[in-house]
């Protein structure tokens, strides 16, 4: 169980891992996530969205960015190693149906969980345009895979080192201006999802976002992941992680994501000592 079948470094900080997990592979749907814990008494539980799955190999694929202590340690595992604890699939799947014209927007590592949604939306007969963005060329992932699925792929980088020099919201706005879009799905940093939602609100395009709030158990038990949607408290782990972007209280989400920032900055600093992973450019 949970043996790493394949591992690939996609960019300075981003890794792809294929993990043997037949039951999760069978049950998972686009938009769902897992929680993993590396074993032992002291490791934390971290939620990661499922990027892909294979029924034939009985495996799921995770794509993650080594941003914290636990993801750095995860990145050190090699093919053949086991992940002690893997729970899933969690959360409510994406509503995949025939909308018509769909735009999928992915930023940074958020491009990974967007991939199965693009695949699903395409399979449901939608016209799917995809916008993917990253801070810089180095951090861009899944360009080829997206190109193979999307009717149109637009690539942007913040610094212009690859593709168009823009934020994802710029081409999104142009697409919304050019024709009637029926649904937008956005996954990426919360600030990106916030501005995507503000952009589409102007055009009244329904917008689905995937929220990555702080979580422990992932089953509804702790309530740490609560977010405010439409003025009501929701638990991202069971009611989400996907919500109507126009209803999300983004400022509250951003505040809550910073709950442990002081503690984590210290740990992040500590975790780089002795690990052979290069710090990203940020």
């Amino acid at each position: 169980m949970n043996v790493i079948l394949a591992k690939e470094q996609l960019s300075a900080e981003v890794f792809r891992m294929e993990i043997k997990a037949p039951e999760i592979a069978e049950a998972r749907r686009p938009g769902q996530f897992i929680i993993l814990q590396m074993g032992g008494e002291y490791d934390e539980r971290i939620p990661l969205t499922i990027a892909d799955a294979s029924l034939e190999r009985g495996s799921i694929t995770l794509i993650f960015q080594a941003v914290g202590e636990s993801t750095h340690r995860l990145a050190l595992l090699e093919v053949g190693d086991k992940i002690a604890n893997l729970l899933g699939p969690l959360g409510t799947p994406t509503e995949i149906k025939h909308f018509g014209k769909v735009v999928c927007v992915g930023g940074g590592i958020g491009v990974a969980p967007l991939y199965p949604i693009v695949e699903g939306m395409k399979a449901a007969g939608n016209e799917v345009k995809v916008i993917i963005g990253a801070r810089t060329k180095e951090l861009l992932i899944l360009e080829e895979e997206m190109k193979n699925q999307a009717d149109e792929l637009i690539v942007v980088t913040d610094d212009g080192s690859y593709g168009r020099k823009a934020l994802v919201t710029e081409p999104l706005k142009e697409l919304c201006q050019a024709e009637k879009i029926d649904c937008v799905v956005a996954i990426g940093p919360p600030v990106m999802m916030k501005f995507v939602s503000l952009t589409t609100e102007e055009f009244a395009v329904p917008t689905i976002v995937s929220l990555n709030s702080i979580m422990i158990d992932g089953t509804g038990m702790c309530g740490g992941c609560r977010v405010v949607v439409g003025g009501k408290t929701k638990f991202a782990c069971v009611h989400g992680p996907e919500f109507d972007g126009h209803q999300v209280d983004w400022d509250n989400l951003l505040l809550r994501l910073g709950t442990y920032r002081d503690v984590e900055d210290e740990a992040h600093h500590r975790c780089h000592i002795g690990l052979d992973i290069k710090e990203g450019e940020a």
Binding site: M221, C222, G223, G224, R226, T233, V238, R256
Partner: peptide, 22 residues
Amino acid sequence: AGLPRFLNIPGENYVGVFSANE
């Protein structure tokens, strides 16, 4: 019984408010 109850009062989602479960 695994879904913590909150009071539904203003400010319950500020940073520093936790369910006892969490």
